[in-house]
Nucleic acid binder design. Structure first.
Lengths: 104, 104
DNA sequence: GTAACATATCAAATATTTTTGATATGAGGT
DNA sequence: ACCTCATATCAAAAATATTTGATATGTTAC
């Protein structure tokens, strides 16, 4: 049972880590197999698995298995959802609150 | 000296933590003084200071001092920049790479 | 069936982040 | 000047995330 905050935080975990940003950059040029990512990143096998799990759970990355190989790509839907969410989280509400603090 | 990855990660640190998302939600209804945030969140004074620092450094939140009080608000510019960056990070490149791995 | 390979999972070690309470610093009033 | 208040900073403790190497699991070939 997750709160909406936990769910939202999970989405942005894709972007708030240097290594995961590097992975995303590699995936921008198209779907890639884990074995390729492993060569091009300064990560061990289990390290890559760990980060890929975070990325897939965030919804920003999708995976598909082909035999022994796992291919990863950026998810269009997941990315669009994250973009919309970021917009929402930073957009002012209509309701205006009165400042009732900070009296001198 | 920060890499672009470290800089980008810093921006999204605003969104990948539950407490910071709660703060952002409070700021959506307009600029707020730290003393108000302190009442409405389950955080101690130094805890709030810590998280506000992360938010301000991310560029998503701006602060201004008025006497003894600090007011925080969501930054329109910082937010727009983050939105654009997220779009960029998840948008496929034109260049298409050939898959040369995973031979049977 | 066995063996090789790809990758997930595990648990412990390590690194980083967050929390906590004390203290420092600055603004304002007298 | 002293005092109060608001909030940043500090350092250590606590919590969490990440890394690491070993192991498990699934796919494929023979």
């Amino acid at each position: 049972m997750q709160t909406k905050y936990e769910e939202h935080a999970k989405i942005f975990k894709a972007f708030c880590d240097e290594k995961r940003l590097r992975i995303l950059e590699l995936l921008r040029s198209g779907e890639k197999c884990a074995c390729v990512l492993l060569e091009q990143l300064d990560l061990g096998q289990s390290g890559l698995s760990y980060h890929m799990k975070v990325l897939v759970e965030s919804g920003i990355v999708e995976s598909r298995q082909e035999g022994k190989w796992i291919h990863y790509k950026i998810s269009e839907n997941g990315s669009a959802y994250a973009a919309a969410l970021l917009k929402e989280l930073t957009t002012p509400n209509v309701f205006l609150e009165e400042n009732t603090c900070c009296k001198q």
